[in-house]
Design a protein around this nucleic acid. Structure first.
Lengths: 344, 344
DNA sequence: GACATGCATGGAATCGATTACATCGACGTG
DNA sequence: CACGTCGATGTAATCGATTCCATGCATGTC
């Protein structure tokens, strides 16, 4: 592969001049510029990003460590992140943690070794020493979706509290009183927060959330299945299950179907995260939708601000309730922006 | 960030010795090794992968350019690729082309600039000059899922012909005679091959595939919707629609639902690619499932063989028919490995 | 005891870029 | 006409690693 030396030789100039042409340095004669560009063209020369990065100490690359690519929510997040980063002149390297702290660490380490300019993380756990050290050492970092409390890193996320209150109001309005939740890992903020918000909203209606009705999942479909089976085995099963992410909702759907039961007649279902498939499930699933694309874009902007020396901003956007048919009330048709909040 | 020089100074040795310790070179005294490792530990030193790559001309990184991350099929492919690559000591940088040739080129260019060791591509088109040049110039490359005919690059893919024959047999057995297809872009092999195989299989049953029954899609949901609407507007609409990928099937489902019609009563549906959601759509969708994970792993193995100087092998795996309820015959329960092939 | 052998180690070149500094010629000004 | 200024260019240092080569020392052999 041709190097800058080959170009210099072909154009009859020094490597410095070639570099100047390539970086639009002003003081290069028109003649030299022409000859260099011609040589670049003839040789099919492309600058070696590795060498350039070593010298400039910038890679123009962001790392993105997500919890699970197979989760359509994170796939969409990844897509929007890459899109915005590209618009700002950065590339993105994605690390998929599969909800495993060890894999998350592996990717963080690899990304740091590559000297990425900044890191976008959706932590799968309370924070490994590695990540905390990196943050403390000054690696530009932004948390997205999930975060780690007590760490001085900007957070870009959706606040589900209001939407969860809307959901509980909706369920209460439909006559449901026994509500259960399939929670995510307690170590994740989205895992614990959603339970808390759910419990608080239920309290507003004088409803308890017994331990038997809070199942522990791990954001994967299998755990949704397992927890739902547990619910169905109870002497008095819940009337509604709220899954804290879309994959656990899928698992819940599996469990209900496997018993020959029906949603919502035997068990109603609602989920966090909206994805295109939920419109076509049997029945269509009532969800709390996050502004996923906007989340990804805002996270990239915050991170690039930080990298380029501007003060980064934490951003919190609102999730919103999208009523479909899985909780009992038939929605007339899509889209249904039903978000009527009624206090008790 | 500490460099190898800092480690050398802290350990009281030269950088050469530090490098030897780090690379398990045999001739290093136990004493020196201990001191170096201690210094590494104290300083929290991590080798700079950028510098290492520049010197060794290896990045231990593979590029993967896929057509669309939002497509669960490709998300799963990406995941299995990363998994196998990690097992073999490589990292993966994913480029998402969103089915756009210009984006594909952007990512190929960026990956080559980074001097990745090899490239895994699922081309969105007939092949840009950039990619063809790279292949000709000797960049280790392997095509996965889709490929470009006439280019000397190993291909790892699923052969859908047999499964498509099974599908047509299944449809014929259910009494369907008017079969339509939503094809992918003709520039992609998976786009054109699936149509050809479908046409050929129908011919075995003496069924024609009129132009009016071959819709042109682009592997995105919206095109599936548009084409399906066209089918439904025909004086004599088809009885079955076969979508060449899962997203177009989703679009078809949308179109049917929007008209207040039902699958399979008003229009039966089958799709290429199996994804977990298809079990829970209304109705569950009959599909041709690819061994996606195995595809990704085989592609990585072929590419790494090529990179490390072993002869790479093209691999073709079989897709298989998974019968569910979207074509009319109720499957008893999952899993249903119904693959009975009956010749006419 | 002289010399070959081999291990441990350090010095320095190298990868491919960027960039500070030096140089040189042309030009404008007093 | 002498000198300062400025634009264009080249030389060389530098980034952080790897690795060739030379050196020094200990050991073994005759």
């Amino acid at each position: 592969m041709a190097s800058i030396k080959d170009v210099a030789a072909a154009a009859g100039v020094s490597v410095a001049t070639v570099s100047r042409v390539l970086n639009d340095h002003p003081s290069v004669s028109a003649d030299a510029r022409t000859r260099v560009l011609a040589a670049v063209d003839v040789l099919g020369y492309r600058p070696n990003a590795v060498a350039r990065s070593l010298r400039t100490d910038q890679t123009h690359t962001l790392g993105l460590v997500i919890s699970d690519v197979l989760n359509p929510y994170f796939a969409e997040l990844a897509r929007s992140v890459e899109e915005e980063a590209r618009a700002l002149g950065y590339s993105v390297i994605i690390g998929n943690a599969d909800e495993r702290p060890d894999l998350q660490d592996h990717h963080v380490r690899t990304l740091l070794d590559r000297r990425i300019d900044g890191l976008l993380v959706s932590p799968t756990d309370g924070g490994s020493p590695l990540m905390l050290d990196a943050a403390r050492a000054g690696t530009p970092m932004v948390f997205v979706d999930r975060w780690i409390p007590g760490v001085d890193v900007p957070v870009v996320r959706a606040d589900g509290r209001a939407a969860i209150r809307d959901l509980v109001a909706h369920l209460y309005g439909l006559g449901h009183r026994r509500l259960a939740i399939i929670a995510g890992p307690a170590a994740t903020t989205t895992g614990s927060e959603r339970v808390e918000a759910f419990r608080a909203a239920m309290a507003e209606y004088g409803l308890p959330l017994p331990d038997a009705y809070t199942g522990q999942g791990d954001f994967q479909a299998e755990s949704g299945r397992r927890v739902t089976e547990g619910f169905l085995d109870l002497p008095e099963p819940p009337e509604v299950v709220f899954a804290a992410d879309n994959l656990m909702a899928l698992g819940a759907l599996d469990a209900v179907r496997a018993r020959g039961l029906r949603v919502p007649d035997d068990l109603a279902l609602a989920a966090f995260d909206d994805i295109p498939w939920f419109v076509h499930t049997d029945p269509p699933v009532t969800v709390l939708a996050q502004p996923t694309g906007e989340l990804g874009r805002a996270a990239v902007r915050a991170l690039v601000d930080r990298i380029e020396g501007r003060p980064p901003e934490s951003v919190t956007l609102a999730a919103r309730l999208v009523v479909r048919r899985s909780c009992g009330e038939p929605a007339l048709h899509e889209p249904s922006p039903a978000t009527n909040r009624s206090q008790p």
